[in-house]
Amino acid sequence: MDTVKGRSALEIMTGAGVLAVAAAFLFYAVAHGGRGAQPGGMLLTAQFDRIDGLVNGADVRIAGVKVGSVVSSSIDPQSFNAVVGMRVDRSLRLPSDSSAEVSSDGLLGGKYLSIVPGGAERVLAEGGRITETQGSVSLESLLGRFIFSVTQMNQPAAANAETAAPATAAPR
């Protein structure tokens, strides 16, 4: 009976240790996950026709390297476009003609904001606006256009086949 009690206590201690290590990993991931805003970063805005799937906390990247985070999204009441606020690393000195586009981490991946630096001498300041933008591309829309174009291409071929084949009547 003592062996069973000793074994149970050992199993409980091992389980508690595993839970403590898992909690430590979870704490580290939340604290250092990089999904929060860049507190010392420079606030910039950009306006897009659509931002499907881009959420607050999403990465802002240059050449695939994370340089900031999306901090807000709203609708411009005049143009009905999406206005995205982002904080980026203040040390970057982005040219004023830089562009931004909503990109995807693959077919099923999340969305992020990709900035392509321009070549202008002037740089964006705190509160600056990136004016050259490209919104997200809807996969459903692209698929619908492809299916529509394929059916349009096949319709004339089917119509030509019907008119080209002469109707043959059996002699009486």
Rank of each mutant, 00 (worst) to 15 (best):
M1Y: 10
T3L: 09
V4N: 12
V4Q: 11
K5S: 10
S8M: 13
S8P: 05
E11Y: 15
E11G: 15
M13C: 12
G15L: 09
V18P: 03
A20H: 06
V21F: 08
A22M: 12
A23N: 13
F25P: 08
F27S: 12
F27L: 15
Y28R: 14
G34D: 02
G36K: 05
A37K: 06
Q38S: 12
Q38P: 05
Q38F: 08
G40N: 08
M42P: 00
M42S: 10
L43S: 11
L43F: 02
L44N: 02
T45P: 07
T45S: 09
D49C: 07
R50S: 14
G53M: 04
A58N: 05
R61H: 02
I62W: 00
S69A: 11
S69H: 00
V70N: 01
S72I: 09
S74V: 04
I75Q: 08
D76Y: 00
D76P: 01
P77A: 05
Q78K: 15
S79M: 05
S79Y: 01
F80P: 11
V83I: 11
V84H: 01
V84N: 06
G85H: 07
G85R: 08
M86I: 04
M86L: 01
R87S: 10
R87L: 09
R87Y: 00
R87E: 09
D89S: 08
D89P: 00
S91P: 00
S91Y: 07
S91C: 03
L92W: 00
L92R: 04
L92Y: 00
R93Y: 08
R93A: 14
P95E: 03
S96F: 04
D97Q: 06
D97S: 04
S98A: 06
A100E: 05
S103D: 08
S103Y: 03
D105L: 08
D105P: 02
L107H: 13
G109R: 06
G109A: 08
K111Y: 02
Y112T: 03
Y112A: 05
Y112D: 02
S114F: 06
I115T: 02
V116I: 13
P117I: 03
G119N: 14
E121V: 14
E121M: 11
R122S: 12
R122A: 14
V123H: 03
A125D: 14
E126R: 01
G127A: 04
E132G: 11
E132P: 05
E132N: 13
V137C: 04
S138P: 04
L139V: 15
S141G: 15
S141T: 15
S141H: 09
L142T: 14
L143S: 12
L143M: 11
L143R: 09
G144P: 02
G144C: 07
R145S: 15
I147C: 11
F148W: 13
F148I: 06
V150D: 10
T151D: 12
M153I: 11
P156N: 08
A157Q: 13
A157E: 10
A158H: 09
A159S: 10
N160Q: 14
N160A: 15
A161T: 12
E162H: 09
A165C: 12
P166N: 07
T168K: 13
